[in-house]
Design a protein around this nucleic acid. Structure first.
Length: 106
DNA sequence: CAACTGACGATAG
DNA sequence: CCTATCGCCAGTT
């Protein structure tokens, strides 16, 4: 069974609005985890192991620089497609514009 | 129960 | 610009 911290992260991920993306560190921060890279690792672990079992919008999670974090051939193309379907645009370098990052204002 | 696994992020060189 | 290293630690096997 997931811990409370895990549940908080799962909940935070589910709270990302459609057509927006969030970074790992951002999720960790909102969920109340220590930053500096360590918190982001939590999000990674949770996504890797639980995104299939839980009902998570894992495709809305990207790296802080806007690039897709997945390795090519491991779902990266799928993630890009899913985001495009939600209206998220990628620039020439394959990154999401900062304007698409979830801001918590809504 | 021990070892392994990671889709990050900051920093230093 | 790039690579290397460290911090962080739940979940899976």
């Amino acid at each position: 069974m997931p811990s409370e911290q895990t549940l908080r992260i799962l909940d935070t991920i589910r709270a990302v609005p459609r057509g927006r993306v969030a970074s790992y560190g951002q999720i960790a921060m909102i969920a109340g985890h220590p930053l500096g890279g360590g918190g982001a690792r939590d999000v990674v672990r949770i996504l890797v192991s639980m995104s299939e079992k839980e009902n998570l919008p894992w495709w809305r999670i990207v790296r802080k620089d806007g690039a897709i974090a997945l390795s090519p051939g491991n779902g990266a193309e799928l993630q890009r497609t899913l985001l495009l379907q939600e209206g998220v645009i990628f620039d020439a370098s394959g990154k999401v514009a900062e304007a698409y990052f979830w801001t918590l204002y809504e």
